[in-house]
Structure formats: structure tokens, C-alpha cells
Write a protein that binds this DNA or RNA. Structure first.
Lengths: 187, 187
DNA sequence: CGGCAAGCGGAACCGTGTTCCGCTACTCCG
DNA sequence: CGGAGTAGCGGAACACGGTTCCGCTTGCCG
């Protein structure tokens, strides 16, 4: 028996101070993301954590890795909610609508996340992948359960993500509403 | 004694070389936008035009001013098409759908324009304004003619603009289709 | 032609992300 | 417990893009 072994993937087998720094960095990054959005300057995050910028890049080679690490649990929760909603809702269509609502809530409450998600910058590839790996199958299952064949899950997630861009910084624009209209209008 | 310049300030009173440079810059910018998107580095545009970067900033104080100048005619054409479509179409709803198609075509064929349009960077304020000034009233008229009160013109344009983001760089995503579904689903 | 301000070029500056390397200090082993 | 070796650290340095600034050039007008 190996106590705590591999409980947190990135933390196993490292020196104690390295593990401490990684945890501190995750906290600092989460705080910085709340305060300044996911575009928070690397130096700010490093300063919050009380480490040098080199330490960030050692633990998280790209910004996307850091973002994924911070939000991994929420991505997971969103993915897990899919089957639950399908079981609990009156119709698959309702389940889809509710699940999309969860996804939208997630995106609009993280400033800049929707923007980062759709960036075609190669550095954000792993962020893109992390979302698609977990959420695409869930979305596909919901579409399938609802008998919706007119769009594939990728396009729908992409469209919803796009609609969420800038949602937090423009009082005249209500992303939730436009997403609702889109989903309701799916043929 | 007159401490001011001998000639009135204004476009017509510019020096001949300045007017020449401005025209050259517009051509160079248009070419750079086609080649590298509207995010083309300022130095690239200057190099294409054979001028220094200072010359760009003198004629176009912000990047948005340059973008607006390059696309002014197309914005204008799109705005002008609104009333025409309303007169020529079977129903206001059809006219709206066709007009949105024009708008989408405009956006997706200009790499990075949709992204720039929705940027909350203060430098893009005049770009934002240029689009809204001309297109918002047209869109509002089309919505009104169709009796659509459930969304305002700003939200619709914003949503359509968002859906067009990244349309040119992702083969799996068809912005025109998602926009079509959204517009068709407007209650 | 001569004076002078409009206009020009591009070096310099600033704020990002990212890399690199000399030093620190943690861990392990004797 | 103490010394050696290395994982890991800090932050200076570099890359790169936008923007500013200022000394020089040049078109314009008298």
C-alpha cells in the first residue's frame, strides 16, 4: 500500500517543496483568474504565489495547462451532470437545454475563458482538448437521446462557446438568452 | 501675426505626399489583412507600404481607424442592402435572413475581423462604433418589419458576430449554419 | 529661392510571454 | 548527523508586438 500515491497526477514523485509550490500556484492562479480573468499576466500569478515565473513554466509548460489544472474539477462536474440530467428530466430536449445552461454558467463566470477556449493559438490546444475530451461525448449523448441529428456535438459546443464570449463585460449582451434561443431553435 | 499654419487643417489641405502615403497605406493594409488577417503586425503593413511605422499612426491613430478605413465601403454596402432586401423579399423575415447572410459573409471572409469586432480593448472602440452606427439601425428596421421584439438589434448583431469568430480557421465549424439556426429560431 | 512647418522614419520604450542558467536547499545515503 | 548531488528555484534576459517621440527631410508658399 502506498499512501497518497498518484492521488493528484501532477504531484506524485516530486520533491516536497515542488509539490507545495504547485498547490500554491493553483491557488494563486485561481485567485488571479477571478480577479483579472484567465488572461492574468504570468508575473502577477507568480507574484501572488510568491515564486518566480520560471516556477510556473516548470509546473505548467503552457498557460493552457494551468487553466486546465485550475478548472479540471468543474469540467468534470459539468461532464458528470449530463447523464444525471438525462435521467432526471422530462425529455432529452429539456436535459440538453439544462446541460447547456450549466456549460454556459461555467463559461460566463470565468472571465476570458470562452475567448481562450476558441483561440486558435497552438498554446491553447491542450485547453481545447481537455474540454472536448470530457464534454463532447456528453453533448453527443444528449443530442442523440433527443434525436437531434441536424448538428453535431462539436459544432454546438463551439457555437455555444462563441456566444459566451464577452458575456461578462457587456451589460447589453445576454449570452444565456442567445444560447437559449439557439438551442430551442435546433431543428 | 498669425501663429497658426497658413492652410486650414483638414483632409483637403494635406500635403500631396501625405495624401499619397495615406492611399498607399490603405492598399498595403488591405493586402496585409488578406494575407495575415486584421491582426497583421503594424511593422508589416508599414514595410508593405514602404513607410515608417510613425506614418501609420499619424494617419490612423489606432488600429481600429485603419480597419474601418479599409472596410468602410463594405460596411456601407451591407447597410445599404438592408432596405433593398426588405423591398425585394417575400417577407421581412426572409429579408432579415438574407441580410444576416450578407453580414456573415462579410465577417467570415475577413480573417480576424469578427474577433477584433468583439474585443473589449479600448483601442477597438471606433471599430465597434463604425459597425454599430451603420448596421444597428438597419438591423433594427428589419427586426421591426418582421415584428420580432424578442431580441434587440444589438444583441442579434453581437450574437451573429460571435458565432462568426474563428469561422475561417476550423473546418469542422460552419458559422453560416449556426447563424442560420439562430435566426430561424428567433421567436 | 529660401524659410518653415507638415510630414516622415525608425529608434526607443513598454508590457506581454517565454527561455535559460547560476544558485539554493531538499533528499538521501553513509 | 553531515556531506554530496541534483531537483528545483528565482529572476534576469530575450522575443515580439504596439505605441511614442524627436531630429531630419521635403513640399509649399511667398
Amino acid at each position: 500500500m502506498v499512501p497518497f500515491a498518484k492521488r493528484e497526477v501532477g504531484l506524485a514523485g516530486k520533491r516536497a517543496d515542488a509539490r507545495r509550490n504547485e498547490a500554491t500556484l493553483l491557488d494563486a492562479a485561481a485567485a488571479a483568474f477571478v480577479a483579472s480573468g484567465v488572461d492574468a499576466p504570468v508575473r502577477d500569478i507568480a507574484a501572488r504565489a510568491g515564486v518566480g515565473v520560471g516556477t510556473i513554466y516548470r509546473h505548467f509548460p503552457t498557460r493552457a495547462d494551468l487553466i486546465v489544472a485550475v478548472y479540471r474539477h468543474q469540467i468534470e462536474a459539468c461532464a458528470a451532470a449530463g447523464p444525471d440530467l438525462l435521467a432526471a428530466s422530462d425529455s432529452p430536449r429539456t436535459a440538453l437545454a439544462r446541460w447547456i445552461d450549466l456549460f454556459v454558467d461555467f463559461l460566463v463566470t470565468k472571465h476570458g475563458l470562452a475567448e481562450a477556449l476558441r483561440s486558435d493559438d497552438a498554446a491553447f490546444e491542450t485547453l481545447h482538448a481537455a474540454f472536448l475530451d470530457r464534454l463532447l461525448p456528453v453533448c453527443a449523448a444528449l443530442l442523440d437521446a433527443g434525436g437531434i441529428r441536424s448538428v453535431d456535438a462539436y459544432q454546438l459546443l463551439r457555437a455555444v462557446g462563441n456566444l459566451c464570449i464577452g458575456a461578462g463585460s457587456d451589460a447589453r449582451y445576454d449570452a444565456r438568452r442567445m444560447v437559449g434561443i439557439l438551442v430551442a431553435g435546433l431543428p
